[in-house]
């Protein structure tokens, strides 16, 4: 995100003015800046917990200083290492599976905007963006009413002989990644398509007209005009999501997780939460969190660099 906008308001400074005015603007803005420092930067002191063997209820400095031992323990201890590998596998698995679906919003927008009826377009758009505004807790409740052991979808599958008695998708440990990704698609597809609708309406109509005069059919117009015009948008979004790779959030996995599917559903963020708040292992949890923050920063920088190389401008 480069500093932009040399507006004419800003130009007022060009005539030499009292320096006092510069400080005044800063002082007025400072309370808001201070809030950012207080809630986003001040937590960095919490990183020091990773250097101690912190026990809840004790003052940090009364706890044993262990240096970087917590970090090495995460890798040397077999249980810790296995956990770390497991949650990383889940995080990567769910994300990579999700990438298979990334062209869907683009296709959704292309085909919907090719439809003849504008009203139908509007209706589909409105209806399909709705799930995006619903929290994961509610989605859990919805899915539960369909797929629990006596849910209506389970009954249907049973009567078709596709599943056995006692089948309960909510507690099953099978295909957890796929189910989580499909739910994300259900929730986000219509919403993610909006950005492509915007991009499509920005494509110059002259190109389509010229193509039609040359006798291009619909598929050719989509393939040679629409898709190439949308590819840059697609790549920007892809690069941004790579920068966000480790930030899965916890809402979905916390609500859908249970003892039986924990093995496959626990992602890195959820692991940090479970380790720190659930089992009170603050020091280890902070150590994992630090590694995550550092890796995330590296990912962002590389994604940004890639974007600069490919498109000549930075994403962030």
């Amino acid at each position: 995100m480069q500093i932009s906008g040399r507006t004419s308001v800003g130009q007022m400074r060009r005539k030499p003015k009292h320096k006092w005015d510069d400080y005044k603007v800063f002082l007025l803005a400072f309370p808001a800046i201070a809030l950012v420092l207080l809630f986003r930067y001040a937590p960095l002191w919490g990183w020091s917990f990773a250097l101690f063997q912190y026990k809840p209820g004790k003052a940090l400095l009364d706890c044993k200083y262990v240096g970087l031992q917590n970090f090495s323990f995460l890798f040397s201890n077999p249980v810790m290492r296995r956990n770390l590998v497991r949650v990383l596998t889940n995080t990567f698995g769910i994300h990579l599976l999700g990438y298979l679906f990334t062209p869907l919003p683009m296709l959704f927008a292309i085909f919907l905007s090719e439809m003849k009826s504008k009203r139908y377009q509007k209706l589909v758009q409105t209806v399909t963006t709705l799930p995006n505004f619903i929290s994961w807790v509610i989605i859990y409740s919805l899915v539960n009413s369909f797929f629990s052991s006596s849910g209506v979808a389970t009954n249907l599958l049973k009567s078709l002989g596709l599943v056995e008695e006692g089948f309960n998708l909510m507690t099953s440990g099978d295909h957890v990644w796929l189910r989580m990704v499909l739910l994300q698609q259900w929730k986000g597809l219509g919403w993610s398509a909006i950005i492509y609708f915007a991009a499509i309406s920005g494509i110059s109509q002259d190109m389509f007209e010229a193509a039609m005069i040359d006798g291009a059919n619909r598929i050719q117009r989509i393939w040679y005009i629409t898709i190439p015009s949308l590819i840059p948008t697609y790549f920007v979004l892809l690069i941004m999501s790579i920068g966000n790779f480790l930030n899965t959030g916890v809402d979905q996995y916390l609500t859908f997780g249970n003892a039986l599917n924990k093995q496959y559903i626990e992602v890195l963020d959820l692991y940090v939460y479970n380790l720190g708040i659930g089992s009170g292992q603050i020091s280890f949890s902070v150590a994992v969190g630090i590694m995550k923050s550092v890796v995330a920063l590296v990912l962002f920088s590389s994604a940004n660099l890639a974007s600069k190389k490919i498109r000549g401008e930075s994403v962030f």
């Binding site: 500093i3 800003g10 950012v36 919490g46 969190g289 923050s293 920063l297």
Partner: peptide
């Protein structure tokens, strides 16, 4: 306001928090 004292620094510090966080537990 372009003339804010230290604007570049403050703006960068604020925007950077979109891409970097100390983490949930801290």
């Amino acid at each position: 306001k372009q003339n804010m004292w230290g604007r570049r620094l403050w703006y960068r510090l604020v925007v950077a928090t979109m891409y970097f966080s100390a983490g949930m537990i801290p």
